[in-house]
Amino acid sequence: MNKLLIFSIVLAVAACGSKKQSDGASQTRDFSFSLDTVRIDAGEDFIHVNWNLMASDLTSDGRYLYNFRTGASEPALELINLESGKLEKVIPISLDGPNRIRSPYISQVYPQDDGNFFLSDGYELCLFDQAGTKLFALSYAEHDFEGEKLPADMRITLQETLSSDGETLVTLYGDQALEKSPFGVAVFDLEKRQFTYTPLDVFRELDPYRVSIYRDGMAVGGKFAAIRLMLKNDSLIFSNSAKNEVGFYDLKADSLSKKRFSSQYTSSEATPNASNRVETDQEYEQLLKKTNQDVTYGRFFFDEQNQVYWRFAKEMDRMTGDSEVYKTVLTAFDPDFNQLSEKLLSEDFVLPSKYFVRNGMIYTFLNEEDEVAFVRIIPEFGS
């Protein structure tokens, strides 16, 4: 982490060439970038960094980062003003009473344009105002929405995305024990209070990258390829951590398509597992070590100012003594997901779990002795 402190001095990085994608039109739009560091002042309070800002999201105007104190004994939502660089407000959230949340372990925060915000723990979605008053609640398993019902042996999984207007929640669904990859897409229309689901085999392609650990014949955990979802108009955009690709599912037309990419720096996909189950902790630890060295593709996130989608990828490059040295790649795609250019970042760069784009700059979270900072990647595109 200390190595990243050198990024407080802006570093000019030379541009590198792009490589053709394996699907879609070939284009060229190269970029260079520099780096700097900004820090957040928490004042007399503190910012919850225990979960590396994983339960946080940016407001649509880019002014605030809403960060939930997930797992805290006194849950709350923090409003971090990114313009002033200060923690501006803390909204307490109750675990009891009419404004309660089901669990202090929130996984998704969805800020709304009117200042309200949704909180989700993967089982329940709740809408709150700035006073912490609950305005709406949806239980995924026990909802009373009209329309279809999931089969009894199926459940909503932990992958979800909410439309920008807060009216449509799209999730995946699968088996009750979550032993297999998702079976399809489920849609909650929050405005009309309707529910539908559609089987899709495309997610089952990720079964070779999924392993469950069993104890006494029951699955108690596992390791699997992460699936990321975005909603744009009527199109569900999905990607995963194991393959260099992106998929599109048209919710209205019930049509499916994909684009595949290639990289001059990383493997085209992670290594499939030899088995889908392990029985001991030792086997599981060996599996985790192997998969952590494999290529991992991050989520796509859109840069309004530069009109590109960005995506990080990470893969072990080599061993230096007993230490693993990783390479991190930043790739730009146009709004139609045609690959434009990719850059290999410095070995000193450590890719965090939380990053987002604001004002054409990529903010990557840096924990500086439990204080919040962001290493910013500042791209510049050629003409």
Rank of each mutant, 00 (worst) to 15 (best):
L236W: 00
G147K: 00
Y64H: 08
K259C: 09
V220K: 05
T266I: 08
A55T: 08
S18T: 09
F238M: 00
V170E: 06
S107T: 15
P272Q: 02
T168K: 05
M230L: 12
S262E: 13
D201A: 15
T37H: 02
E74R: 14
G132T: 02
H48M: 08
D281V: 07
L206W: 10
S262G: 12
Q194D: 08
V185E: 12
F301A: 04
Y326R: 11
D175F: 11
D144T: 15
E142R: 13
L65F: 02
A270C: 07
F224S: 14
E283P: 03
A55Y: 12
L127Q: 14
K252I: 10
P151T: 07
V13M: 11
V13H: 13
F46T: 14
G85W: 14
A76I: 09
F183I: 08
F203V: 01
F188I: 00
A186C: 15
F224M: 13
I101H: 12
G71W: 05
E142L: 12
S257H: 04
G122T: 12
E304K: 15
T28G: 05
Q21V: 02
T171I: 06
T161M: 01
G97C: 10
D207T: 08
F248N: 06
G382P: 00
F203N: 01
R376W: 03
S120K: 12
F136E: 09
Q286A: 07
L77D: 04
L95A: 04
N116I: 11
M361E: 15
V10I: 13
E347W: 04
L87K: 07
E269F: 09
I106G: 11
L158P: 02
D294I: 12
A42R: 08
L190C: 09
R29D: 11
Q112S: 05
T271A: 14
G184M: 05
L229F: 11
L236A: 05
T157M: 06
Y66T: 03
V246R: 08
Y123W: 10
V325Q: 11
Q282C: 01
G71R: 04
S22D: 14
F261L: 08
P182G: 00
P182K: 08
D165Q: 08
G43M: 10
L351Q: 07
N338M: 06
A253K: 15
L344N: 09
Q108E: 14
F31P: 04
L172V: 01
F31Q: 09
T266H: 09
D201V: 07
Q108T: 13
K232M: 05
A131N: 13
G321A: 13
K232A: 01
M154E: 06
L82Q: 01
A219R: 00
F300Q: 06
R376L: 12
L236V: 00
E285C: 07
S263L: 08
I6L: 11
R210Q: 06
A55S: 15
F381I: 03
A152H: 09
N67M: 02
R193K: 15
S353F: 11
Q108F: 10
A332E: 07
N338D: 14
N367Y: 08
Y173K: 07
M361I: 04
L4H: 00
T320N: 12
L366M: 04
A42K: 14
D216P: 01
F374A: 02
F128G: 05
L178P: 01
D317P: 02
Q282R: 14
F203P: 06
A14W: 09
F117L: 00
A313C: 07
Q21K: 02
V49H: 02
S103R: 01
R39E: 13
S120F: 02
K89L: 01
T291C: 06
A313M: 01
G184V: 10
F117G: 05
